[in-house]
Design a protein around this nucleic acid. Structure first.
Length: 927
RNA sequence: GCCCGAGUGGUGGAAUGGUAGACACGAAGGACUUAAAAUCCUUUGGCCAUCGCGGCCGUGCCGGUUCGAGUCCGGCCUCGGGUACCA
């Protein structure tokens, strides 16, 4: 064996660990650079080949930055709390901590084999009391804070009570739950319980009754981003709506800042769009519609105040408090039946029946404040209580849902917007609502004739003049539900006195997770922590039995890495001032509406407290694409144990059967391995083509059941970590999703051995030559330096690997073994293939690790060409090429092109109309 | 429905508006070898060709801008992701 990767990789991994090569300290003499991977949840299945994709990319970048003279922080840890370990505990009784510990050990082993440059001394685990102490600490601070919209930041609740004591709440502009106005006297005469209840409306971490996503199978509540189409993201269990008392984080207070911050960070536009949509800011206006025969006003929110003259009815959500109050006796029975039916329908049913129109007339009428018309009030489940006010003004002419509803129940439809130059058609002939984003108002009283935009402003102004509403901004973003009825999570640092929650003091932290006898809810349905003995404070007050959700621990871990062993603070001021924020964050786009939004909120809150110097935590973020599986199939002839090769399958009636991809090489089946794979195939017969059995293939999700899972360990065993690293990068653009396919890995392996041979003679003796490199050698090297630098900086790692291949091919061609050239090449390779680079670096006689070498400086002087092979086109079609010196004047080039012997044929005796010459690029002759 | 992103050889993929298919894989042929592995060489988008001159067609489809379009613009089709009675 010439290139012995097994020995080399083991040797250097050991050396890096022993010398703590990647240990990082604050160093003010160097600029900092913080490269972070989204830390993994250590699942029992271990890493598959998709996980390291992002880690390899970020590791290459981290190593590159070190060569460029940066002090690089590149840590790793574990998102160690989570459902799978707890589910396993329920089934087996094994403590989740034990399972987690074991899984972490396996992850670590796998990660170490790939040769990452993590500073493991900074490892954090979210389930470690030394870590979650600070998660709990942050919760206490959230509980003790409110959001002042005037100063636009979080402030202490103590300051708020002071204001209440002196002047009540009328002058307070807070992001809060709905509260009535009270005076200082009223506040001061309240008892503590009343005051606490009131303050709950202001706290950034607060307790409230809310409709939650309850998952009976998991026995817990889930956040919106943990639910997809009515099923839990983890496990795929059905989810239903239920009202429960829950802790919430008032993330909505930060809606605008979360939105604004997106403009200042370097994330992909698509990811920012996902967050923008999730926050869902919409500008509009709120307006009160008077209800006939009562004093009541019905408040609605609309983004299209201009269409108010087109309102022909109103709709309330079934949960709207007014439904019961305004329904007339004649309609009561029907409305009650409808409301009950609507309320009990699961999310699932509602989603499945979006197209079905349902609703009921309440018997009540409202009065259109602009037109004075009387309009009926309906109740229907297409209006959601959770958005706006739970009531809408229906404009069936210009809203598809209102239109469908009006058609179904025979309600009038009126057109109020018309595009310029179009003659309005009777709405009764429409098949759908009329798109009204642009146009001119018609049938609209005082705004008739205005453009939509002006009409909106005009209508809002009138609403404000009438004192029935005001311009308002609405958000789709909801406060984050922060309680989970689970065991394996952070305990809340909260106890209850007289039924009111209070937080522990800082010196009582961490509040450690107690031992319990079974990882299940109690018989009375309380969360598992209710089983813990003495789950109470020293004074005997009961502690909170919910635990925090998965996103709690991951919301601030990047800050803790800056100073992970600090026992007196979350992280020191010094550490935060040095490391500031994450310069490069690498991870999956699936966290767009979860972790990535919570972490930004968490960080902004800590920024308000003055703890962090940056309000945005991740200045650049890259989403690595998903690695999909590539499945292989064999084709069994129906009713037989005969298998027909891929291209012959059409002549038979066959069923495709998944076959383990590890038994297939370049789509050719290892027949013996297949026979031994499962007993049912032991007697299998095969119809071959060209003496081989060819399998079919398809791109699918990587999963055990599809037998297409590839784990990195096998590949490292066969080719080594450096080959795996290069191959994962060579697969294609980092951000693109792509199928995993080992078909190309041989090529990368060949390349790396070819690289090795540059430094060795035929007998594998290390051999480099001294002396000055040739001009050609320098040209190849410097072309490569330039390309690698450019490609690495724009994260185009696939083309960088190609550039290395070209470089090694060319140097091999030149039979180059020059020390100077190879020394520089070694440094270039180091971020990509660190083990072989380290070995060659030491063979070259260099002291110390190549990690801290200096990145070669590109010298364009070595790569200048003095001639250029001009492509000459006629009418845009390439006809021939012409070698000409660079730097000769344009008319000369023109002349040379036309005078070329090949040109005569295309000129056909004519004089060219025009000749375009782009020096150093192209010549185009127009005939 | 709405908002993004992507469609290039048998495959993964290259290509600041300037020689489409770099670099690999696979395949075919050859060298070396008792043989195999490894290695090396040649060919490899399609069609036509008096296959050593050459030509025509080709980047999902239809148009447009331009001396010149895979790249820019307009309209469609397909696939992937996000979101969904959000007023």
């Amino acid at each position: 064996m010439d290139y012995n990767f097994r020995e080399i990789e083991k040797k250097w991994q050991k050396a890096w660990a022993e010398n703590k090569t990647y240990k990082t300290e604050i160093d003010h003499s160097k600029p900092k650079f913080y490269v972070l991977d989204m830390f993994p949840y250590p699942s029992g299945a271990g890493l598959h080949v998709g996980h390291p994709l992002g880690y390899i990319a970020s590791d290459i970048y981290a190593r590159y930055k070190r060569l460029k003279g940066f002090n690089v922080l590149h840590p790793m840890g574990y998102d160690a709390y989570g459902l799978p370990a707890e589910q396993y505990a329920i089934q087996t009784g094994t403590h989740p901590a034990v399972t987690t510990e074991k899984n972490i050990a396996r992850y670590r082993e796998q990660l170490d084999k790939i040769g990452f440059s993590y500073d493991w001394d900074r490892e954090v685990r979210t389930s470690d009391p030394a870590y979650y102490k600070w998660t709990q600490w942050t919760f206490i601070r959230l509980f003790g804070s409110w959001y002042n919209k005037d100063s636009n930041k979080a402030e202490a609740v103590d300051k708020l009570t002071e204001i209440f004591r002196l002047s009540g709440n009328s002058g307070v502009n807070a992001a809060c739950s709905e509260t009535h106005v009270f005076t200082a006297e009223e506040w001061n005469s309240m008892n503590e319980r009343e005051q606490q209840e009131l303050l709950m409306n202001y706290r950034l971490a607060y307790l409230a009754d809310t409709m939650v996503n309850w998952c009976p199978a998991l026995g817990t509540v889930l956040a919106n981003d943990e639910v997809s189409e009515g099923f839990s993201v983890r496990g795929g269990h059905p989810v239903e709506r239920k009202s429960m008392k829950q802790w919430l984080l008032r993330i909505t207070a930060y809606s605008d800042r979360l939105l604004e911050g997106l403009d200042r960070i370097d994330w992909s536009e698509s990811l920012k769009d996902i967050q923008r949509n999730w926050i869902g800011r919409s500008e509009g206006c709120s307006a009160q519609f008077a209800l006939k025969n009562t004093e009541k006003q019905l408040e609605i929110f609309t983004t299209r105040a201009d269409t108010m003259f087109g309102v022909t009815f109103m709709v309330l959500a079934p949960e709207h408090p007014y439904v019961a109050e305004i329904t007339t006796p004649e309609c009561r029975a029907k409305v009650e039946t409808y409301v009950n039916w609507a309320k009990n329908r699961s999310e699932r049913e509602r989603m499945a029946e979006v197209k079905k129109v349902s609703g009921e007339f309440t018997g009540a009428y409202a009065i259109n404040p602009l037109s004075g018309e009387e309009i009926p009030v309906w109740v229907a489940d297409y209006v959601l209580m959770g958005y706006g006010t739970g009531a809408i003004m229906a404009v069936p002419g210009h809203d598809s849902r209102d239109f469908a509803f009006a058609r179904h129940f025979g309600l009038p439809i009126r057109q109020v917007v018309s595009r310029k130059g179009e003659t309005p058609v009777d709405p009764s002939e429409w098949e759908e609502s009329y798109d009204s984003k642009e146009g001119v108002m018609i049938n609209s009283g005082f705004i008739t004739g205005l453009e939509v935009k002006e009409a909106i402003t005009s209508a809002i102004r009138r609403v404000e003049e009438l004192g029935i509403g005001y311009g308002k901004v609405n958000y789709r973003l909801r406060d984050a539900i922060f309680s989970r009825q689970r065991y394996w999570g952070e305990p809340f640092p909260v106890y209850y006195r007289d039924g009111m929650p209070y937080t522990l003091t800082e010196d009582e932290l961490p509040l450690e997770l107690p031992e319990i006898d079974a990882y299940l809810p109690t018989e009375t349905g309380e969360p598992p922590l209710a089983r813990a003995k003495n789950w109470a404070t020293k004074d005997g007050y009961p502690l909170e039995t919910n635990t925090m959700p998965g996103f709690a621990g991951s919301s601030g871990y990047y800050l803790r890495y800056m100073d992970p062993r600090n026992t007196t603070e979350y992280f020191s001021k010094e550490a935060n001032e040095y490391w500031q924020d994450v310069d490069l964050y690498m991870g999956g786009a699936e966290h767009a509406t979860g972790h990535l939004i919570y972490a930004r909120f968490w960080n902004k809150f800590l920024f308000d407290l003055g703890l962090t110097v940056k309000d945005e935590p991740f200045s650049k973020l890259i989403n690595q694409g998903m690695i999909q599986g590539r499945s292989n199939f064999v084709y069994r002839i129906s009713g037989t144990n005969q298998f027909v090769s891929y291209n012959l399958r059409k002549s038979y009636e066959t069923q495709p059967i998944h076959v383990d991809v590890n038994m297939v090489h370049n789509d050719i089946l290892d027949i013996e391995a297949f026979k031994q794979w499962q007993p049912q195939f032991s007697g299998a017969e095969f119809i071959l083509e060209d003496g081989k059995y060819l399998c079919g293939w398809e791109v699918e999700k990587m999963s055990k059941s599809k037998y297409n899972v590839q784990n990195p360990d096998d590949l490292i065993g066969k080719y080594g970590a450096d080959t795996l690293r290069l191959y994962e990068m060579f697969l294609g653009p980092l951000e693109q999703s792509k199928p995993w396919d080992t078909n190309g890995i041989e090529g990368v392996f060949r390349f790396i051995r070819k690289l090795w041979r540059l430094y060795h003679d035929f007998d594998n003796n290390f051999l480099v030559t001294e002396g000055q490199p040739s001009g050609q050698e320098l040209k190849v090297l410097h072309k490569t330096i330039n390309k690698i630098q450019e490609d690495t900086e724009r994260f185009s790692f696939n083309t960088a690997v190609s550039a290395f291949m070209i470089c090694v091919n060319e140097l091999s061609e030149l039979k180059c073994s020059n020390r100077q050239i190879l020394n520089e090449l070694t440094i270039l390779m180091a971020p990509y293939a660190p083990h072989i680079a380290e070995e060659l670096w030491s063979l070259l006689g260099n002291q110390g690790s190549v990690t801290f070498a200096e990145f070669p400086v590109y010298n364009p002087a070595y790569t200048v060409e003095n001639t250029f092979n001009y492509p000459v086109s006629f009418n845009g079609k390439l006809r021939f090429t012409l070698e000409l010196p660079l730097g000769i004047p344009v008319p000369e080039i023109e002349k040379a092109a036309i005078a070329a012997p090949e040109a005569a044929k295309w000129l056909d005796g004519k004089t060219p109309k025009k000749v375009i010459v782009v020096p150093g690029k192209i010549v185009n002759v127009v005939v």
